[in-house]
């Protein structure tokens, strides 16, 4: 009995390692959008890295904060230095599960990502809606959601004149290929 279970465990353990089908991000576009009375601010980041395990639907994404590109150099500077404090907290990360992914379904389907998001050193549980599409060997994930700056303890300096919205819209587009 004892040995049998051990063997089952061993096989299961090995099986997980061998068969884990992992996808990694090959192309990404993460857009930050702030709508404020004085000016709208948009920033784009193409440098996200991430892995998706299609066996257990687990996903992990890291976005380097300093790689957000703005129209104006000064905005980028303020974003990094004053809001995100990207030297202390260089990365935004998400780790969790994607619900609604089915290997056999090739159509665009609605999906839900659920997990922990870490921004500005603060980790929060989040649930966001999005879509998944399988295109030949590729997987395409999209999602749009809003985050409140206050939730992540991102303070708006009182002296700042160009106001930034208290709620930011994030649009995520990820293209993944088998690793």
């Amino acid at each position: 009995m004892k040995t049998r279970i051990s063997i089952i465990l061993l096989i299961l353990g090995v099986a997980t390692v061998v068969h884990a089908q992992k996808y990694k991000i090959v192309k990404s576009e993460i857009v930050f959008f702030s709508e404020a009375p004085i000016e709208d601010i948009t920033a784009i980041n193409h440098d996200a890295i991430g892995i998706f395990n299609s066996d257990n639907n687990e996903i992990a994404i890291i976005v380097p904060v300093a790689k957000f590109e703005f129209d104006k150099e000064l905005m980028k500077e303020h974003f990094n230095e004053k809001y995100m404090e990207s030297e202390k907290f260089p990365r935004i990360s998400f780790s969790g599960k994607v619900k609604g992914y089915n290997k056999k379904n090739q159509n665009k389907t609605d999906a839900v990502a659920e997990g922990k998001m870490s921004i500005h050193g603060v980790t929060k549980d989040i649930v966001t809606n999005g879509t998944i599409q399988a295109d030949k060997n590729k997987l395409i994930f999209t999602s749009t959601f809003k985050i409140k700056l206050a939730d992540y303890q991102i303070k708006i300096p009182q002296l700042m004149w160009q106001n930034i919205a208290e709620e930011i819209e994030i649009t995520v587009y990820l293209e993944l290929s088998p690793q």
Partner: peptide
């Protein structure tokens, strides 16, 4: 335990890659 670790593993797998990304020092 395995499931719990797997999630962390995925993220820590990325961490090492992330430290190879060069970003300009700001401010």
């Amino acid at each position: 335990l395995n499931v719990a670790f797997a999630q962390d593993d995925l993220l820590s797998e990325l961490e090492s890659q992330a430290s190879d990304i060069n970003t300009e020092v700001v401010g």
